[in-house]
């Protein structure tokens, strides 16, 4: 019998995690803390806790991308192994743990399901045109900011009008560009675009609002 490894209710992004069967269950460690512990100490208990949190979400994500149950199980394991191997490169000032895991899962499924490369920038490329205003260097502050903005983002996501939230989920979960979504759902392309733009405007405002 398959039993859920985590409670069905979603975790708040940066709130204390409740985990089943991990030695430090009930501690107030965030996902980010645990990811850092894996990167720093190869902490298996922290990894198990991350698995408990992310594996069921990754499975749901991969199923929506068209994986069958067995394929999704296998791919979840591959993604979690990458999390283990790459944890050392995780920088909490740049992204929340969920965002970081999302990008790993996205790239892995493009690689495995589509057998395509995903072209990405190389941050060390001398041809990269730098930002006009350089990133603030204080890492501790930026980590806090990243966590706070992730919290605001989740709140803003809940407040989106349903038709915007629905399109946003399709755009991120169904491996279809917005032009295809428009055709398949019978929604005019202009409407798809304007809903996605409006949604992104609200979310961007929430992310950037430092008040």
């Amino acid at each position: 019998m398959v039993r859920p490894l985590v409670p069905r209710a979603p975790f708040p992004l940066n709130a204390p995690m409740q985990d089943i069967g991990s030695p430090d269950a009930g501690s107030d460690q965030t996902l980010e803390d645990r990811l850092l512990a894996v990167g720093r100490d190869r902490d298996r208990a922290a990894f198990a806790a991350l698995f408990g949190h992310f594996a069921p979400r990754l499975k749901a994500y991969l199923r929506r991308q068209g994986c069958d149950a067995a394929g999704a199980e296998e791919l979840v394991q591959e993604v979690m192994l990458l999390v283990w191997r790459r944890a050392e490169t995780y920088d909490p000032a740049q992204a929340s743990a969920s965002t970081w895991v999302f990008t790993i899962a996205r790239n892995k499924r493009i690689d495995v399901l589509r057998r395509e490369q995903r072209p990405e920038i190389d941050p060390d490329d001398p041809a990269l045109v730098p930002a006009l205003v350089p990133d603030r260097p204080e890492s501790a502050d930026r980590r806090l900011e990243t966590q706070e903005s992730a919290g605001r983002l989740r709140a803003a996501l809940k407040d989106l009008p349903p038709e915007q939230a629905e399109l946003l989920r399709l755009a991120y979960f169904e491996d279809k560009p917005h032009s295809v979504i428009s055709i398949e759902r019978g929604i005019p392309l202009g409407t798809v675009k304007s809903r996605l733009r409006l949604a992104m405007e609200r979310l961007r405002k929430a992310l950037r609002d430092t008040a």
Binding site: P4, R57, A60, F102, A105, A150, R154, L157, L207
Partner: peptide, 18 residues
């Protein structure tokens, strides 16, 4: 990508093989 992370967070989880 942060939006992708937030959407992954709120997706209805699907139980994995124990």
């Amino acid at each position: 990508e942060a939006v992708g992370g937030a959407l992954l967070e709120e997706i209805e989880p699907e139980a994995v093989d124990p």
